[in-house]
Design a protein around this nucleic acid. Sequence first.
DNA 1: TTCGGTCGTCAACTGAAGTTAATTCCTCTG
DNA 2: CAGAGGAATTAACTTCAGTTGACGACCGAA
Lengths: 149, 149
Amino acid sequence: MPDTPSEGRRTLAAKLDHLFRTVHSREGGEYSFEDVADALRAAGGPTISGTYIWQLRKGLRDNPTKRHLEALAGFFGVPPAYFFDDEAAERIDAELSLLAAMRDASVRGIALRAAGLSPKSLTAILEMVERVRELEGLPDAAGGDTPEE
Amino acid sequence: MPDTPSEGRRTLAAKLDHLFRTVHSREGGEYSFEDVADALRAAGGPTISGTYIWQLRKGLRDNPTKRHLEALAGFFGVPPAYFFDDEAAERIDAELSLLAAMRDASVRGIALRAAGLSPKSLTAILEMVERVRELEGLPDAAGGDTPEE
DNA sequence: TTCGGTCGTCAACTGAAGTTAATTCCTCTG
DNA sequence: CAGAGGAATTAACTTCAGTTGACGACCGAA
């Protein structure tokens, strides 16, 4: 039939919301809409008003123009394809979840010190971490999403 | 080479023009702007007027919206990233040049019969082809573009 | 030649994309 | 509790993406 049931599709708003939730500022909190607007203005490229970014995130407006899509993708450090292709979006989300984990200072500490270890040691440590996760009742694969409070 | 070789970033207009030149209808000619508009209307998705497609190709308008970018990419069978990322565009262009070559009936015949040959035979034949190209004074890499105007 | 069709081009117009500015909602701080 | 400051939200407005319709060039047929 003509149109596939558009059920599984993630909307632009959902993707943008996900970016806001996962990509945080250096201080740790979510970026505000004005933060993003200011950063884009400072970057010299095309600018977007904070209000409009809010509308996009809330889903009141979808269908931005090419230049605005580029600017947004540039700010969050994802390829513009993120907003189009759902498969690419998932792949990128996996990397983003890593970035989200890195927000935890102690995780970051572990990562920094683990860098440079021999493969053998790394797998051993990984195994240990998995065990602990198991003990804590966490899922074994990358969860990614922040648990609802 | 009609195109300026490595003139930095390719514009949207240049990319769209390239698609028109390489992706042809079943009858063999280039698609007309109305053809594309009609096809999109028939596809049920978002529609674009023929005039606007012309404006985009000519470079009078750049900066289309997300939905129109998707529709255009869908029609020409390329991912929307084609219009954003230049590297992706080059990679896809390589495949498109193959498609352009396939328009030549005899090339198509060779390809059809070469399919299924052993790797050894294929490399041998490829080498032969390269020799012939050399004799004919053609560049060794995939040229792609139609030489004349 | 003239008629009829199609396609590319142009310019005026419409409506949605995007902005500006005012208002409400929090959340700190004294 | 007041009230300052900063963020989210709403509404009114402006701008430009996208359409409509007309015109002229081109091509084949009568």
